[in-house]
Design a protein around this nucleic acid. Structure first.
Lengths: 202, 202
DNA sequence: TAGATTGTTAATCGATTAACAATC
DNA sequence: TAGATTGTTAATCGATTAACAATC
């Protein structure tokens, strides 16, 4: 299926899916207008986003709810397991290892890597990183090390068969062109929230 | 100072700050070109972003590094403490409560609220939420409850003196116009990463 | 057929980039 | 003065919205 959608569109797809699945009485069909109203968005935007992954909407009827759910889940890969590891098992890393919520999205966190051992956690030495990525078929590395060692770790990952890095550190990291990166800018989010608060108080 | 910057600009400010503070030998002055190169960005973008919070850049010299750091920290509010609470002390909520990393950004997580008591955590009953927000002068609520009860909690917050909600749930929530919301769409981030991986593998 | 809803084409809006003028 | 670097004005690009045609 078309994987050339814009980043903005892709980020909204899980929101649509969640909205539809959370409806109390799931209707047989659902329209873009309904979704748009429920999420306070423009209905054309919803329609365009959905059109990018399926073109099964029927005029006057809407989308078959069950089919839409399954198309979304399959496009997002929620129906198959992707394995991940956490690198840097500090507080945030441990947090993400404990948090099982990503399994809903098909992401299974298999183990962690760190220079230290952590009680009650499956944590391996960084020496083993490359080998285990290969032998366990790990696709994604969740990076939660201190920012000043980020690139060091990324240099190891560059030599590995990892396919993507989910970067929770504030450091800018550089990979081979065949490794995907997604930066999770929590400091940025917080800055936006604080700024909004300041505006309201003005 | 001007708080009408675009969301994109504001999200980048913490990245600039981190980059400058992480430089090994902090130069007396720093240019937009240096920052841009270090972060793989356009230099005009950096200059415009910085111009929006200070106009102290000197042609041929650049920005006074120390002053730039202090302007950024002050604009972002890192120099004063903002109090927050975590609502919903499940795995993600506990994780964020344990994680002290936000203190660097001036955000102090004071306590949690939940329907259950949690061992070793300062967790209060939701009955006390409104009163404690007022008495402790809490500005931000970090929302990590199960998605299906999000709006319920937001209804309580709407009656409180909270100023902002950092929403880690996947639910769409609706507040009074005088409460700021920032949605943290982790599922969306993961979708973008997976999509990038798929594109590379095509 | 009439009306509702989809999908598409054109218009608008905002963010980024390019070109350039100002200044130290 | 010449050159480097800032800040600004104009051009481009992409995302969203508006208008509308297609269809059940």
């Amino acid at each position: 299926m078309n994987s050339n959608n814009s980043v903005s569109t892709i980020q909204r797809l899980p929101i649509y899916l969640r909205y539809i699945k959370n409806l109390e009485e799931q209707p047989l069909n659902i329209s873009s207008a309904q979704i748009a109203q429920g999420l306070h968005m423009g209905e054309v935007l919803v329609r365009k986003d959905l059109a990018s992954i399926c073109n099964k909407g029927r005029p006057k009827v809407g989308y078959d709810t069950k089919e839409l759910i399954s198309v979304l889940e399959s496009y997002l890969g929620y129906d198959k397991e992707t394995k991940a590891v956490v690198i840097g098992v500090g507080k945030l890393g441990q947090a993400l290892m404990n948090y099982s919520g990503f399994e809903e999205y098909g992401l299974k966190i298999v183990c962690g890597f760190d220079i230290h051992n952590i009680d009650n956690k499956v944590v391996y030495s960084l020496d083993k990183l490359k080998d285990m990525i290969k032998s366990l078929d790990i696709k994604i590395a969740i990076l939660t090390v201190p920012s000043n060692v980020s690139q060091e770790i990324v240099d190891i990952l560059n030599e590995s068969e990892i396919q993507g890095i989910w970067n929770f550190t504030t450091a800018h990291i550089v990979t081979n062109s065949n490794i995907a990166i997604k930066n999770e800018n929590l400091a940025g989010s917080l800055a936006v929230l604080s700024n909004q608060i300041n505006k309201i108080n003005e």
